[in-house]
Every structure is written in C-alpha cells, then in structure tokens.
Amino acid sequence: MSFDWLSFWEFLPRMLQAALVTIQVSVLAVGFSCLLAPPLTIIRLIAPWPARVVVGVFVEIVRGIPPLVIIAFVYFGLPAIGLMFDGFWTGVVALTIVGVAYAVEIMRSAIESLGRGQREAALALGFPVWRTYLELLFLQALKRTLPPLTNELANVIKASALLSVISVHEITQVGNALIFETFVVAEIMVQMTILYLIIVGALSTLSRKLESRLV
C-alpha cells in the first residue's frame, strides 16, 4: 500500500478551507459562550429562586444529553420558530448552547472554590450582593477558570465535527464527502486527523502560554 501523494496535495486546499470553517464555527461558539456565561453564572448563584432554578435546570439538561441531540433540536427547532438560518449559523447556535452550559458550570465551581471569606468581607464592607460577585469574586475566579475553559474550547472544536450531520462544511463533512466521491480513504483521513491535531494542539499551547502570563 503506497501513499497517494497526488490525491493528498489535490485535496489539501479544500480541506484547509474546511479547517477554516471549523475554526470559525468554534471560535464564534466559544466567543458567544464566554459572553453569555458570566451573567448566567451570576443568575445561577444569586438570583431569586425561580431564575436560579431555570438556569440550573438548563445547565444540567444540556450537560446531561449528547451534543447530537442538541444539534438535532436546534436544526429542527429554529425553522419551527421562524428563524431560517443557514447550516453554519445553526451550527454556531447549537455549539453555543452546549458551550454555555459547560462554561456556566466551570465558572460557578471556580467562584465557589474561592470559599466564603472573600464574599463575607465584601458584604461586610457594604457591597451589594451582585456587585460582590461581579466586581470582586469573578475577577479572582478568572484564573481558576482558564484551564477548564481551554479544555472546553478543545471540546467545542471536537464537537464541531458533529455539525457534519447538518451539512456544515467543516473538516469532517468535507473529508467525508471527498471520501465518498473519490474512494480515496487513507490520505483524506490522514489530512483530517492532522488538521484536528494541529488546531487542538495549537490551542493547548496558546492557552498554556496565556496561563503562565496571567499567573
């Protein structure tokens, strides 16, 4: 069995474009997750009873079912409520929902790991509860959220492969289509594997650098 280098180079441009889509979808999803997670975390921690429960249940449910089910839900659900997104944005929405649930859980446990003392000192000075969390506790907890959040980003990148079922032209979808078109298997699989390893690997290195900068 020899490696078909001709096909390898021939398909590379399309795979690289697909890699770009993978990165775009993942970055957007994680970006939105990071924007939505802090307010949701605060609600989860200190809002009155009904709101707290709603967020808590949402987080537990999303974390407790396979991402494919969430993707199916979004795929069928968005048009049903009148939002005709294309595959790409449907994918972003689905990954954001998954990402937010995990991000809220990460932030919540980071803040709770700080212990009571900080919170009480701030309250004793006269900070209202929400300002205590937002301005003091969150900042401190930030450092503790970095490692699990990076892990989460890697998970989102891997989950983006699942978007192939809704025809988002990311790495897995394009690779798969090529395999079925051309029956070239090994070379394309190698490309897919290497691309994912590079993307996830680069991410881990970047985040390690970021972590050491912030410590």
Partner: peptide
C-alpha cells in the same frame, strides 16, 4: 493519548469504519 484527545470521536469512528475493512 494525544491522538485520542486531540481528534473528534467521529473521526476515530470513521477510522475504524473505513480503515478496518481496507
């Protein structure tokens, strides 16, 4: 371990699905 953690499980499934018969 690096490989398993750095690639989506779908890709791993495809590897088994395509490569084994080959």
């Amino acid at each position: 371990i690096f490989f398993v953690r750095g690639t989506p499980i779908l890709v791993q499934i495809f590897i088994v699905y395509f490569v084994l018969p080959a």
